[in-house]
Computed example of a mutant assay.
Amino acid sequence: MGEQRQPLFDDFGRTDATPSTHQESTFEFLNRIAGAYWEHPRALMQKWLDRIPSEPEHNDLRQRFRSRDDEQFRSAFLELYLHESLVRAGYTVTIHPEVHGTRRRPDFLAERDDLGFFVEAIAPGSTPAEKAAAQRRAALFDTVNRLGDPNFMLWLDELEEGASPPASARLRKDLRRWLAELNPDVPWDADAAPMRRWEHDGWAVTFRAVPKKPEARGTTRNDRAIGIYGHTGVDFIDGAPAIKKALATKHHEYGNLGAPFIIAVGTYIHDRDRWHSGNAMYGHVAVQIGEAPDGSMVTREIRQPDGYFGTPPEWTNRNVSGVLLVNQLMPYHVQRAETILWRHPNPVHQLPEAVGLPGDTLSLAGSTLVEISAPTRADQFFGLPDPWPPGEAWPDDE
């Protein structure tokens, strides 16, 4: 097997049990967080990584996990999750198989009995400019969260971002001086709360002071000054465009593979009612208004022709047999990831009736969505105890 593999996580005595900061990457957090609870996701990742037979593939995943880039981490964990799922479903898995007629290689070829299909994984990412802006915001959030004021927490009300990192020392000093002048026992009202607007070098941030309850005053190890992140406002969220954009980067890479083809997309959409996914796959739902023979107005629900799979009879992307959406996948609650296989209504190559992956299956019969629930709960599929991880993530210090 060659030289001994390096472990995924470092081997040292962990003592830091504080929550993650905004600037801390997922790997950095998991690598240093102390507590029995956190040993379980670390052990799970190591166990799954050990199942990767190829040294180059193992080393590639390990390097991506250990990067400070959360998008690399999520992409690597999606691939590891898919590999583990296919192995547990009884498939023989080939990583990056050769495909006739192209130099490109899908992530996996899964074979079981006389059936086989290809899988390609993608975790949509951010542009470099978006990443840089997120890092600047993270620096500001962490700066404020380290205030350690015994009497107040803060409501972040408005935020205009600067083009360079915020002046951390100046910001903390200004906020501490302001909070020291306030009386936490004065009756508090959200509309009349004490406010502070801080402006410097392109940044403009407005805070409201929220007094802590008398019994909660003082400072503790895990105190964070920002109690409410209210700067983003209220907006209508539609995840369908992001899903379709991610799919568009993959479906033309391989053409007809001569076998069923699944594209797996890792998403982090907070809405779990499947509205986004249904719109992305089969088109946004609309209401059509018409006139009945008796002159009355009638309405019916239709889907617009903007779905990834198209609409009958003009189905599109027929080389993609199905799309596996894996939403909110993280190592410390892997069993809670929402996994759905969306079948193409008329693919070139039909997937087997029972693919065997964790999660539900949805297909379109006429204009009706047909759902087949997962035969096994995800924790049982992966052999995890219930609850998992066992124990408490943040046990009381007392």
Rank of each mutant, 00 (worst) to 15 (best):
R88A: 08
E55G: 03
F77T: 09
E55Y: 04
E55D: 14
L78F: 09
S75Q: 15
D70S: 07
Y81S: 02
E84N: 13
R74F: 13
P53H: 12
E79M: 01
L61M: 14
A43V: 02
L44G: 07
Q63I: 01
R51C: 02
L80V: 06
H83G: 11
L80F: 11
L49Y: 02
L61Q: 02
S75H: 05
R74V: 03
A76C: 03
N59L: 11
Y81M: 06
H58K: 05
E84A: 14
R62K: 09
E57C: 13
L86F: 01
R68W: 01
L78K: 10
D70N: 15
L82A: 09
F65D: 01
E55L: 15
R51A: 14
D60L: 02
I52R: 06
F65S: 00
D60P: 00
F73I: 04
H83N: 12
L44I: 07
N59G: 02
D50L: 00
A43Y: 06
P53A: 11
D69R: 14
R66F: 09
I52Y: 09
F77P: 01
L49E: 04
K47E: 12
P53L: 07
E57D: 15
F77Y: 15
P56H: 14
Q63R: 11
Q72V: 05
F77Q: 06
R64E: 10
H58R: 15
D50W: 01
Q46L: 04
E55R: 14
E57F: 13
R42H: 11
R88T: 01
L86T: 10
E79F: 04
